[in-house]
Design a protein around this nucleic acid. Structure first.
Length: 672
RNA sequence: GCCGCCGUAGCUCAGCCUGGUAGAGCGUGUGCUUGGUAAGCACAAGGCCGCGGGAUCGAAUCCCGUCGGCGGCUCCA
């Protein structure tokens, strides 16, 4: 995101009947006004004596308005060029705006022509005029556009009025506000064209969605475009290819990553570190198969909810499914004996590879593959152990983040059940006629009825959900973490904390998760024996720290542009001899580094030093050691890091320092 | 799954609109060059133009289907 220049927005008192434009006349870059938290057009007139602040075009509000107006401009241009187009809606977004228009598909060439037309309209500085119109009249204006008509019918109450904005022949139903004229929209750019469903419903009309953006000036627009180009260069699919980390064979294994030796090195380092963390915190590792009989998935609730997203097959009359989650498998391991209250918690971890049949339009790269490996863990605990368990998992997550990210910018979401739509979740239902409590798994069970008296009059009982949610919230509070709540985003078996990280380009990625589950242990009949000798329910806590190795690798690659922390780097050192005269010394240095456990290689190519550096650049080695006659004589190495910094070290000194950097898993390197 | 765009050498891409049987750069191999921090020089090898069908004397090129990839939409345990 481009940083916005701060301007001082002093409130001004405005007399009834005065326009905001008049009040802020003489001030530069004001495009709207704000009063009592409500945005107004400059042409609006104060209805009473009020205080109002100017909205500058480079403020967050101003940018929003600018982009909203740019969306209108887009629609105007499209309508001029395509007579049958029917605009639906065109909101501003975080990065720009889009407009959904019902029309024949267009190509990116058409986009250029539309942008050209928009710029012509900008040059004309067409005044943008607001009108307050009764519902009837609005409907009349849009009588040929069913999408606008439906919006008006939904949003404007019978007998009331709303606003329309016009610029020349173009009119849009819109609450505004907007810039005073199209001349304010000089820095605009159309970005892409794709499709969207009307109201997001695949059964309704397909709209052409045109994406664009607008900025207060061309400099910030160019900066934005530069950042976008930079982001594209950091695409993990591109860098993964340059670094030779993984391949996708679209014919033989669509959506399934295949790891090269380099990529496998990264995975192994990630796993090694997590094993250390697990081992020191009482997480035992288990191994479960990739295939189970479908009976397991029926019991766990996966069949009811996710069958169409699973890889399933039949063999000699028996149904099987590849695991989409590890938890039911871990339950099978856990359930081999009877547990006393003293045995708990039991913590199982597994680097479990999961298979999910992601739909064809959704797979892509390592962020959405069809097979991926979770650093999964399930803690089987007593009720009184939940809080501590969650807290300690949150601690691990925070510690691990310091080994992965230079600046770990974590954010925490609390994902809860949507009590208005409980049918998407495992919920207990209380029968209104007999009082029996039934547990219903997922919505695909169809019409639900009481398992005791068969009455269909059931009332959802959220006691377990509420309790689980409060444990998560308390753990977050205790750790002093700020978080946001998202009703409806919970897992089907329980609420969860999702942890996101922001990468170097400001993009947000979900990584870790902590989930409290009161249901699945019950479905599998898990229990422990309490101090009074009675059976008591076991609670499961699901957690993943990296999330998936695949997605974490993608985040690390994109966040660092492939310049990974040395401990994760597949190429920690490349020794480059200047000529064959220094080859022997290069080999000696290399052998010594390898003996210290460092991933080091000698570049044997018969090329110039420049060419060698250029070629190695794609692999992003942490350090390139150039050695020639000078180094041979002085027992030194000339070190060049991935950021092109250079320094001379005695080679024993370098070996010692890089060993320390790697063993401490530092995110900073020796040359900074 | 839906809409749009795309699929040509190991990689990145041109050729396709306006049909006449395939091109570049990088990489690879060989030779020369022994080089001091982001491309030294030359030559050579390398392609069922994703797959299947159709119309045409003739298809990488036009049409249909299919499988993939990308951008979105929807979904994401």
């Amino acid at each position: 995101m481009v940083s916005l220049a701060e301007k001082i927005a002093e409130p001004k008192s405005i007399k009834k009947g005065m326009s905001f434009a008049h009040a802020f006349s003489g001030m530069q870059d004001v495009i709207a006004a704000k009063s009592d938290g409500i945005l107004h057009d400059l042409t609006d007139v104060a209805e009473k004596d009020i205080l109002a602040t100017p909205v500058f075009k480079d403020s967050p509000d101003g940018l929003h308005i600018l982009r909203h107006s740019a969306a209108h401009l887009l629609a105007q241009a499209v309508l001029q060029m395509y007579r049958n187009a029917k605009p639906n809606a065109g909101p501003p977004t975080d990065e720009g705006f889009y407009y959904d228009i019902y029309m024949d598909p267009i190509s990116s060439d058409d986009l250029q022509a539309i942008e050209k037309r928009m710029k012509e309209l900008v040059a004309k500085k067409i005044p943008i005029v607001k009108r307050v119109l009764p519902r009837k009249e609005l409907l009349e204006i849009f009588k040929n556009n069913k999408f606008k008509r439906e919006r008006i019918e939904e949003k404007v109450l019978e007998g009331s009025s709303s606003t329309a904005y016009s610029q020349a022949e173009f009119t849009d139903f819109c609450t505004g506000p907007h810039v005073p004229n199209t001349g304010y929209l000089r820095a605009i750019k159309l970005l892409s064209v794709s499709s969207a469903y009307y109201k997001g419903d695949e059964n309704l009309e397909k709209m052409v969605r045109i994406y664009g953006t607008a900025f207060p000036d061309s400099r910030s627009l160019e900066e934005f475009l530069r950042m976008r180009a930079e982001a594209a260069k950091r695409d993990h699919r591109r860098i993964g290819h340059e670094m030779d980390l993984f391949v996708f064979n679209s014919e033989m294994a669509p959506g399934f990553p295949l790891y090269t030796p380099n990529g496998t090195t990264i995975r192994n380092e990630m796993v090694k570190y997590m094993r250390e963390m697990n081992q020191s915190r009482g997480w035992e590792e288990v191994t479960t198969p990739h295939v189970f009989r479908d009976e397991l998935w029926k019991r766990s609730g996966h069949y009811a909810k996710y069958l169409s997203d699973m890889f399933v097959f039949e063999l000699k009359g028996d149904g099987y499914g590849l695991k989409p989650m590890n938890c039911p498998g871990h339950i099978q391991v856990f359930d081999r004996k009877v547990y006393s209250y003293r045995d708990l918690p039991v913590r199982y971890s597994e680097f479990g590879t999961l298979y999910r049949y992601e739909k064809s339009g959704e797979v892509g790269g390592l962020t959405r593959p069809r097979s991926f490996t979770q650093d999964d863990g399930h803690a089987f605990v007593r009720m009184d152990q939940i809080a501590d368990e969650i807290s300690s998992i949150l601690e691990v997550i925070r510690e691990v983040s310091t080994k992965l990210f230079r600046v770990p910018l974590l954010s925490f979401d609390l994902s809860l059940i949507d009590k208005n739509n409980p049918e998407n979740f495992l919920v207990s239902y209380k029968c209104r006629s007999c009082g029996h409590i039934s547990e219903i798994r997922g919505k695909s069970t169809g019409n639900i009825s009481c398992s005791n008296c068969s009455s269909g009059d059931l009332k959802p009982d959220f006691t377990k959900w509420d309790r689980a949610s409060s444990y998560l919230a308390e753990a977050l509070d205790k750790a002093g973490l700020e978080y946001r709540e998202f009703p409806g985003d919970a897992a089907f078996y329980g609420p969860k904390i999702d942890i996101h990280v922001k990468d170097a380009l400001g993009r947000d990625w979900q990584i870790s998760t902590v989930q409290v589950d009161f249901f699945m242990p019950g479905n599998f009949g898990l229990y422990f024996v309490n101090s009074e000798g009675r059976k008591e329910d076991i609670i499961m806590i699901h957690r993943a720290v990296y999330g998936s190795l695949e997605r974490m690798m993608a985040i690390l690659i994109e966040g660092t542009a492939g310049k990974l922390p040395t401990w994760l780097s597949p190429h920690q050192v490349f020794v480059v001899p200047v000529s064959d005269d220094s080859l022997e010394y290069a080999e000696k240095v290399n052998r010594h580094l390898i003996s210290l456990g460092i991933r080091s290689r000698v570049d044997h190519s018969q090329e110039s030093v420049s060419k060698k550096i250029r070629t190695l650049h794609d692999l992003r080695p942490s350090y390139i050691l150039v050695v020639g006659a000078k180094e041979v004589e002085n027992n030194t190495v000339t070190v060049r890091d991935a950021f092109n910094r250079q320094a001379v070290f005695s080679y024993m000194d370098f070996a010692e320092k890089i060993s320390g950097e790697i063993s401490e898993r530092r995110v900073t390197n020796l040359l900074e």
